[in-house]
Write a protein that binds this DNA or RNA. Sequence first.
RNA 1: GGGGCGGUGGCGAAAUGGCAGACGCAGCGGACUUAAAAUCCGCCGGAGUAAUACUCCGUGUGGGUUCGACUCCCACCCGCCCUACCA
Length: 836
Amino acid sequence: MTTQHYPFAEIENKWRPIWDEMNLYQTGNDPQKPDSYILDFFPYPSGSGLSVGHGRNYVPTCVSSRFLRMNGHNVLHPMGWDAFGMPAENYAIEHGIRPSESSRLFSETYKRQMQLMACSYDWSREFSSTDPDYYRWTQWFFLLLFKRGLAYQAIGSQWWCPHCQTILANEQVENGRCWRCDSAVTKKDLQQWYFKITDYAERLLADLDSIDWPEPIKIMQRNWIGRSEGAEIIFEISPVSETGPIYQIPVFTTRPDTLFGVTFLVLAPEHPLVAAITTDLPQTAVSTRLRAGVTNYQEQSCRLSEIDRLATDKEKTGVFTGAYAVHPLTGAPIPIWIADYVLLSYGTGAVMGVPGHDSRDYAFATQFGLPIVEVISPNGKPQGIDSCFTEHGILINSGSFSGMDSRTGGVQIVAKLVAGGNVSTEHGRNGRFQTTYRMRDWLISRQRYWGAPIPIIHCPDCGPVAVPESDLPVCLPDTDDFAPTGDGRSPLAHITDWVQTTCPQCGGPGQRETDTMDGFACSSWYFLRFANPHYQEGPFDPEQVKRWLPVDTYVGGAEHAVMHLLYARFWTKVMADAGLIDFVEPFTQLRNQGMMLSVKDGRKMSKSRGNVVTPDEIIASHGADALRAYLLFLGPFEAEALWDDSGIRGITRFLDRVWRLAHEVPMTGELAGTRHEPFERMRHKTIKRITAEMSDFRFNTAVSGLMQYLNFLVAAQAEAVSAAQWRQAVETFMLLLAPICPFISEEIWQTVLGHTGSIHQATWPAYDEAMTHDAQVTLPVEVNGKVRDRIVIMMDADEEMVRETAVSAPGVQRFINGRSIRKVIVVSNKLVNIVV
RNA sequence: GGGGCGGUGGCGAAAUGGCAGACGCAGCGGACUUAAAAUCCGCCGGAGUAAUACUCCGUGUGGGUUCGACUCCCACCCGCCCUACCA
């Protein structure tokens, strides 16, 4: 019986229920075997379901898991849902259902599609971050951070998305726009909860060196953390009157060496000291105008959209406050300005203006006619102030520091300030060495319903009090009234029954915190839960976590480079500090799959662009095996790939030919007396190659390697190969193909080859190194770097012999043409190059 | 402005110091067929030549290192992505 085409639908329908029945992908538990934990990023199910683009993530990890299982590993390859958050909630609002319902619908679709693609997850470990059994422990972790002083409340001017009606964290604002809905964001003052991730900045930076992550991701994290070494320098303000208070303005600078070049100070418009120091002497017309100007400017910069304010090419703006600071080393009066190019949230919210050596300060000074002083020069001679010089050099015009190298000088200037400078201060010093980080604390409050409630009770007498662990979870109340109200408070605030409670500390009346947690809290520890998702005694089972964690291979898109991946590292370090776990990095190896672009417009596949191809349609028309193989074949795992429907025909043809070959070649009968040598060598070569490529995430070349092996086998049908050898070749082929194309390989394995067990529980084939190359090799022989002839010699032949054979080859002689040979390079088993 | 990634046939790509274009798509020619589909065989970077053959050119551009460079180094051009007054 020879069937022309591989009947994918029939074969898939046959095996799906059988595999389910035998629980094929259950996590291994054999103490003799090594354990491997291979994990996909926690997906956030959306209403549009999966596109083939998602397969770029899930298929490779599945193939890897299958490969490891066949290589004798216990494999933990689980899947679950990061289901709190706005898409589910917005969908619920639009469709008049509850978010719990929309979340369930979305994750069911994801699961169905993943199963369609034959992703080999252990579904018995599935959970959702929205299960009270799960978020109970997310709340437990909140309390852990709270008790360790790492969760705190502060009032702050925060990003506010008018469309989503919620506060956003810094990293959720992209170019002044909301990362989810793309609306322009504004600012709003609210009491918020923060996690003190900045306490871990140094360790988050340092430990990057110990993990096997793509270098670009590490670089992005380093940039995000933004460590910057310099000094804090304190400027005192000349008192406005004899009795007035003496204010101090600390500034952060990376260039203390330029201190003698300071000609002004600039505060952020929102800086708390602005109102206090702005000259307020109503008897003079000038200062009244100043005060009005400052107030006016402050209002203006609040109103400016973030996009405008961040536009670096716009003209510098600012106003003078009327106040003067005292230069800590020279005692000179320094005018104090405010300007929106200084950010309150970085450093101290104030900078010293050094127009001679900072391009922004230069632009500002030029704009407002402020003096420019040159204090660094490349060669120690004044260069003039027509432009600003931002490099290091030799200090000039810097008192006793003149003539020093600016790096040395900077250190000495700070040392002088630490000792007290020339101008006395109350603290006895005018500065110190200081390291600043660009990273801010992690804002976790969300004024939305669909999230894990923050487990805090506000008591008028005791302040914010932790909900006792025994009272967890603080469940989300069932309500139909979950739409945001636009007043900046969570919808939970309107559910009085839920809000009103008693203080666990004093027993008096208390009110529940109504903010919910950022979804990134849920995804900061889920990888621990998978080790034993049904554990009830704590967030995770310490014994199973010891066994499986940290995650061996973690796979997802590069877009989470600074959010999820930084938060999860932070929580892991907190857990380690609390003695809960014995490792400090959650993901030993990270790999990023490339984006899937549509061939239609060359852009990322997304529902809004209308260029989505779903796995459902491809599996219906070509089968799951073809989809899987094609996804891998498109290009390198980590590179972006273009989805082009027409290319999948190549895979379909390949599977049809595999099907036919397996049915056509003779696999029973007498073993011939002699073994077909090249046939056997090719088998070993292919095993070696595919094994290496699978281990190395080089799935695209693994697929083409299998195609080449098939081409070889098809051609070998013309050769005299014994039935036994054919059988062995077809078995090997199916085993190598099994992780990529689980259905066709299983069908041939059991039905054609007659095995009784599943191919997915079979052992990966072994190869003999000695058989992975031929006895003879053909070497190209070059003359002056150009191939002129080929010689056939024995593998590992003696170099002298190779040289002689090469030189005497006719094509070579023709080109040497009597010239003298200067050098002969012999690269063993590769090539010969003759230099004449 | 800063950072990252990339640039190889008509297309997706392979080769990471050693025969550039494996493997596949599309295309062209042929076989089979009444015909088509499917399948199979062949060709498939450019130029020169009647031509087997052969020669030359060719991995964004220009230099360099090397017996030898898609690969390493320097400079530049182009595209995409991220980030942005971070003091």
